[in-house]
Amino acid sequence: MSQKFERVQPGEKVFDWLLLLFSIGVLLEAYRIDGIPSVNSPGSFPVGLALVMLASSVVILVSHRRKRRDPRIRNALHEAQVFLHEHFQPHIVVFTFLAVAYLAAIVWASFYVSTYLFLAVTFIYFRHGRVVSSLIISAVAIAVIYALFTLVFRVYLP
C-alpha cells in the first residue's frame, strides 16, 4: 500500500527547531518569575503557556517524520539554496533594507521627509525606473496622508 507524505518546505525544519529553542527561552523566562510556581501565582500561567509551547513545538518536530522533502531537492546544501532563492529574492531584501532604513530615518529626518524618500525610492525600484511618475505619486501620497491623518484624524505624527 502506498503512503502519501506531506511535503516539507525548504527551511521548515530549521524554523521548527528555532521555535523549540524559543519555547525553551520562554519557559526559562517564565521560571524566573517565581521559580517553581504554585497553582495560583503570577508565574503559574506563563509557565503553563511555555510548557504548552514546548510540547506543541516537540509535536511539530515529530510530525516531520510523516513528511518528505521535495524529490527535486538533492541535499541540505541544495535545500538552503532553494530557501534563499525563495525568500531572499533581491526585491524582498531591498524592501526589508529600505523599511528598516525608513524607520531609523523617521527619528532624525522627520516623518514626512523620510516617508517621501521611502515611497519614492521604493516606487522607483519596484517599477523599474519611471522616476517622474514615482515622484509625483509619492508627493500625492504624502499630501493625502497629511490631509487624512493630520487634518481629519488629528493624529500626532513623528
Binding site: I106, V107, F118, F126, I137, F149
Partner: peptide
C-alpha cells in the same frame, strides 16, 4: 508595487498614533 510601500507607511502611522512611541 504601489500598494505594499503604502501599507507599510499606514502601519507606521497607525502604530505611532497609539502612544506616540517609536
Amino acid at each position: 508595487a504601489l500598494l505594499i510601500p503604502l501599507i507599510l507607511v499606514l502601519c507606521v502611522v497607525g502604530t505611532y498614533s497609539i502612544n506616540s512611541n517609536m
